Simulated assay, not measured.
Amino acid sequence: MKRTVTHLADGRELIYFDRHDDADRSAVDTRTLPPPPQASELRRDRLLGEWVTIASHRQDRTYLPPSDQCPLDPSAPGRPTEIPASDYEVVVFENRFPSYSGRVPDDLHGATPGVGRAEVVCFSPDHDASFATLDLAQVGTVMEAWADRTAELSTLPGVQQVFCFENRGAEIGVTLAHPHGQIYAYPFVTPRTERMLSVARAHRDETGRDLFADVLASERAAGVRVVAANDLWTAFVPEAARWPFEVHLFPHRKLPDLAALSMEEREAFATLYVDVLQRLDRLFGVPMPYISAWHQAPVSTGRDLGYLHLQLFSSRRAAEKLKYLAGSEAAMGAFVNDIYPEDAARRLRAAT
């Protein structure tokens, strides 16, 4: 895998990932851009003990541009974009409107800076593609980028957790239609991860066993919620799924993060993941909006408890209906699901 590091006109880092060593990545960003914004501000919610990030500069981020003005397309004569090259395989660059960054102002005025990093991952140069339509070699390149960034971002000062994810579909709130994901390097451990690790620790103290491995083993044994599987991964609907269609993909070997995956595990994941995404798209005959979220162990705490897995979920509950976070979910965090997880799994198994 060829990895080429360059910089955009405002100094932000951009990295090309190519399967071929002869890829020419000498194109230069010719735009005139303002300097990147400084780090966001962290504020502590004293009632919940959780961090909230205030990033007011993101209010000005690009919002649903016409397809011929997409900033994630390759650059063309007279139309420079965020990617200077006229073509690419997979590319990662610092977000122009980051939630977290290393650009900390000298005078903080007592504020806690949102140090870290926010990156964009472009999965394909094809504006009309989707992750589900990528060939397996391209998925492998994306996984190489995820693993590379996980390893590198984990070494940045102040970073406590690395989160690779994709938001797909206008129904989810995506502001750019081009197939892409993001990576956040957080300066704290996120609330969901803290909660999962707390439950896993209690389970280990009580039973001496690993919580995630026990969940995987029970789902594989029951089979009723398994959507698809191979020798190295299993995809299943969790027993207490919060979303109408939610699938978790677990490797059979306990690993802390993406960087720890073997080549065989990456290839096996690619096959299974694309299969599950295609099943989701076939379910209602329309592209399924979804959030795809990699859960990785934190950088310096709880790594012995963490278990790499991917959570994939959609807000679509029927062909013409979406699930919205209403009072119980949004205000109280108490989810109510309209679809039995066993029924969701059965429908996904049948979507061949």
Score class of each variant (00 low, 15 high):
residue 311 Q to P: 00
residue 16 Y to F: 12
residue 196 M to F: 09
residue 328 S to N: 11
residue 321 K to N: 06
residue 76 A to K: 13
residue 98 P to W: 04
residue 305 L to E: 11
residue 202 A to W: 08
residue 122 C to Q: 00
residue 48 L to N: 08
residue 41 E to A: 06
residue 235 A to D: 04
residue 226 V to S: 00
residue 253 R to S: 13
residue 74 P to N: 09
residue 267 E to A: 15
residue 169 G to I: 01
residue 125 P to H: 01
residue 113 P to M: 01
residue 291 I to G: 13
residue 150 T to P: 02
residue 277 L to W: 04
residue 315 S to K: 03
residue 260 A to Y: 03
residue 160 Q to F: 00
residue 143 M to Y: 02
residue 3 R to Q: 14
residue 184 Y to A: 04
residue 252 H to R: 14
residue 276 V to A: 01
residue 218 S to R: 15
residue 39 A to L: 05
residue 103 R to G: 08
residue 343 D to K: 12
residue 77 P to G: 10
residue 7 H to T: 14
residue 180 H to D: 06
residue 343 D to C: 02
residue 214 D to R: 07
residue 244 P to S: 09
residue 40 S to E: 05
residue 269 F to A: 06
residue 205 D to Y: 00
residue 215 V to W: 11
residue 236 F to K: 08
residue 321 K to V: 12
residue 108 L to A: 10
residue 245 F to I: 05
residue 154 S to M: 01
residue 145 A to W: 04
residue 160 Q to E: 15
residue 142 V to Q: 10
residue 12 R to W: 02
residue 328 S to Y: 11
residue 210 D to K: 08
residue 288 M to D: 09
residue 31 R to Q: 12
residue 214 D to K: 02
residue 184 Y to H: 15
residue 330 A to Q: 10
residue 184 Y to S: 09
residue 90 V to T: 14
residue 326 A to D: 10
residue 314 S to C: 10
residue 244 P to G: 08
residue 253 R to D: 12
residue 184 Y to C: 08
residue 304 D to G: 13
